[in-house]
């Protein structure tokens, strides 16, 4: 456990920053878990509740940005403090985009429910579970400063990409077999793409966690390309 800063006000400022990062991460986690549950259950009420939480994410993004700038201007942080601020400035963008993608996912859930409620078949639940676990662990790694957990998250993006490729194949096959499935399949294709993007943002968060802890920039070393649609 590192000693606190001699300047207790500075220590409190950084503690507040970490607290807000934790809160923003918790909301993103809840949005993703709620969105996946709404998708599996065809639950439009839950989906709308997730969409409504996006405002909280947007507010925290602005607040955290402002707080980071204040610390930079007033404290001139260095070393691990500087890495915390630099990483947080990037993290909030990833978290905000994850929130947006959860919102988009829930919009598709509402459209799907209005058309013909059906349990999504195939690889989608497996993919959703893998993405959920990545997001939970990436955020946990960042807020607790666990570089080992972050490194472990980075190894899982390939699995999500392979689920994504598999799912696209299943959905294209559905569409070719029965044109009536096109409306549903195109929305599920979008959902799969959102999940794949969320996993990419989780990868970014894990990379930021490693940078914050070790000062090592490991971006672009772990990426394999997801199929483009």
């Amino acid at each position: 456990m590192r000693a606190p800063h001699t300047d207790r006000e500075y220590e409190a400022e950084l503690a507040l920053l970490r607290q807000r990062v934790r809160a923003m991460g918790a909301i993103v986690r809840e949005m993703l878990v709620g969105g996946v549950r709404a998708l599996v259950d065809g639950d439009t009420v839950r989906a709308q509740a997730v969409i409504d939480r996006d405002e909280e994410i947007d507010r925290l993004e602005v607040e955290l940005d402002e707080q980071c700038l204040r610390v930079l201007a007033r404290r001139q942080p260095v070393a691990s403090d500087l890495r915390l601020i630099a990483a947080t400035l990037k993290l909030v963008t990833d978290l905000e985009r994850m929130g947006d993608l959860c919102g988009s996912l829930c919009e598709r859930v509402i459209e799907l429910a209005a058309a013909a409620p059906q349990t999504p078949a195939g690889s989608l639940p497996l993919m959703a579970a893998a993405v959920e676990a990545m997001v939970l662990d990436a955020i946990e790694a960042f807020v607790t400063g666990d570089a080992g957990l972050a490194e472990q998250v980075l190894t899982r993006d390939d699995l999500v990409d392979s689920y994504f490729a598999q799912l696209l194949g299943e959905l294209f096959a559905d569409m070719m077999a029965q044109p009536a499935a096109i409306y549903r399949a195109t929305r599920l294709t979008s959902v799969a793409k959102y999940l794949e993007r969320i996993a990419d943002h989780a990868t970014n968060v894990a990379e930021l966690a490693v940078f914050m802890v070790n000062g090592e920039d490991i971006r672009h070393r772990h990426r394999s390309r997801a199929p483009r649609i």
Partner: peptide, 18 residues
């Protein structure tokens, strides 16, 4: 100033001494 290798350096430059 971005990645000191000794924890004493880290504590000093980030203001954690005393």
């Amino acid at each position: 100033f971005t990645q000191p290798s000794n924890p004493k350096t880290e504590d000093y430059i980030t203001g954690r001494f005393g």
